[in-house]
Amino acid sequence: MAEPMRIRATMAGDVADVKVLMNHTMETGLRKDSKTGQLIPAHYITDVTASVNGAKVLDAGMSGGISKNPYLGFKVKGPKAGDKVVVNWTDNKGDKNTAEATIG
């Protein structure tokens, strides 16, 4: 099940610097289980969206090529301290997670 996601958002000048750490195994579906020799089924985040005060700023597509427990950093011009950042992800099995943070 989906574990919490961590977001840190700070203002640097007029640009908000947002860092997100998601908890996910990000299995590519190409790896084999060392004991059974069976392929481990793919299980990775496919979509990530982020919005600031309700306006979408980032819409990302991902593959299993993103490292386990994905880290994502991006910058947005315009927001002020106190504005809300919301991040959502969906994985290939339909699991979803959402988290929000206040820009500080």
């Binding site: 980032l58 993103i66 490292s67 994905p70 880290y71 950093g73 910058k75 947005v76 011009k77 315009g78």
Partner: peptide
């Protein structure tokens, strides 16, 4: 979109 800068930082395999 909406003011996001041309910057992305992540970790890949």
């Amino acid at each position: 979109s909406n003011g996001a800068q041309g910057f992305i930082s992540t970790r890949i395999k």
